[in-house]
Simulated scan of single mutants.
Amino acid sequence: MIIKQAIKQANTPFELQFDPTELKNPLVFVFGNRYILEEPSIYEEVRDLFPSGHIVFGSTAGEIVKDEVQEETAVLTAIGFEKSTFLVKRKNVTEFNNEDDRLGEALMETFPQEDLKHVFVVSEGSNVNGSALIKGLEKTKAKSIGLSGGLCGDDDRFERTLASYNENPKEGEVIAIGFYGESLEVSSANYCGWATFGPERIITKSEGNVLYELDGKPALDLYKMYLGEKAKELPKSALLYPLSVQTLEDEYPIVRTVLNINETDNTMILAGDVPEGSKVQLMLSSVDDIANGAKRAGNLAMKGRQTAPELALLVSCIGRKLVMDQRTEEEIEEVREAIGDKAIVGGFYSYGEMAPFFERNSCRLHNQTMTLTLFSE
């Protein structure tokens, strides 16, 4: 596996320190600030570097490269596989009338499943129900096939997110990369590092990812009561106080971020489903807890691996980044300590993370977590 990386600042070309012709038919991830991905020439610029490349774009809330967290840049990670193969497929939410489970099902059906080891997803993050998308992807996927990835971000603006495959980035795209190879080893894991506080409540009214009532009372009113003065800063302040959601079907609680609020309907829009009957508590965290959670995620991803990882794709949550602030890179350093110094690290800060719980086959949508997907040939 040959892996090369480069960084681009706004209105400047990528700063290459390698010869692009070293990589034959590479998979090229470009994770970047939404404004940079809106530059009309962005796809042409990358295509000129890698004429035979398979180029996947995704907008971010921060870019991860090596041991660093970048802002207002685009980070290119080009991967040349020596023993493995891959396929890239795409769908758009508008093709399915926003029925994201059907989109996920249709996307997975485009992959031949024989010898398929893992599917990594880079998804639109503003107008997709990540839980429904994963449910569709899981519906026809064999249990032996891994699934991970993330929802694209737009810093803390929450205006729009972009993604694409072999074209200029645009809204509504869901990209999936399927990895094949007998010698390919892929492992993924997640961990949050957030703690619950306050009373436990029951979701008494919800629809998909829209939360109406807790214990028979308007959910938004209760949430604002707990936030106090910070309620004036919604929806941004909600990133600091996610919800722990214990569903009837999941053994482990799921962390859910509040993406937006609807003052007219008095509702909260979350990044994933919040089923009726689920138990809910508020959450908070500290810098040290988040950093320790990142290390725990790294240790879980390494557990049981037969080979040292060559590539680590990290997807972490914008809420973690806001809490960490100037110390954000500490969680990347903790991951590096767990996985070793041989792996090339890339990734992004997201609006939602996709990974299975440890020693579970099925993938889940997470918020406020560090997720890792480790590759080696």
Rank of each mutant, 00 (worst) to 15 (best):
E263K: 10
Q326N: 10
A10N: 14
E330M: 00
V287K: 12
E95T: 12
E263L: 03
L372K: 01
K139A: 15
P218D: 01
L240C: 01
Q281E: 03
Y252Q: 14
K143A: 08
N129C: 15
I36M: 03
N25A: 15
E333L: 11
E329Q: 15
G347W: 00
A6R: 08
R327H: 10
S41L: 01
F357C: 10
R256K: 09
T12Y: 10
A195R: 14
E329A: 13
N292M: 09
L211N: 07
Y43Q: 11
E251G: 02
V315S: 05
L23G: 12
N209Y: 09
L220M: 12
T264F: 06
K143S: 13
S187A: 13
P26W: 13
M324D: 09
V210W: 03
R305H: 06
N129P: 07
F158G: 00
Y349F: 15
D115Q: 14
N33P: 04
P218W: 02
K91I: 02
L23M: 10
V287G: 01
L322R: 14
G319I: 00
N262D: 15
F86A: 13
E167A: 13
S316I: 04
Y35T: 13
A189D: 02
G216M: 06
D155P: 02
Y226V: 10
A61S: 15
T369I: 09
F348Q: 11
D341Q: 07
G277W: 09
E38M: 07
L162V: 03
M283D: 08
I145H: 12
R157A: 10
E109Y: 01
K217C: 01
I318Q: 00
F81W: 12
D67R: 07
I134E: 12
N209K: 14
A61N: 13
G277P: 12
V46P: 09
A338M: 01
V255Y: 00
N11A: 04
E276Q: 12
Q113F: 03
S206H: 01
E353M: 02
Q70E: 08
C317A: 02
M108R: 05
D155Q: 09
R360Q: 14
V121Y: 13
F120V: 15
M1H: 03
E276F: 04
S376N: 05
I134F: 09
N11T: 06
S144N: 11
E39W: 02
A231S: 15
E15S: 15
G272Q: 07
V245Q: 12
A176H: 05
A10E: 13
F96Y: 15
G53C: 14
T110H: 02
G178D: 12
N33C: 14
N33Q: 08
T373G: 00
E124L: 11
K143C: 02
A195L: 08
P51H: 11
N129H: 12
E105M: 02
E99L: 08
V345P: 00
G181A: 07
E359P: 10
T257Y: 04
L239I: 13
A61T: 06
Q326E: 15
C192A: 11
F14W: 03
P199W: 10
E276T: 14
E82Y: 00
A238W: 03
V174C: 07
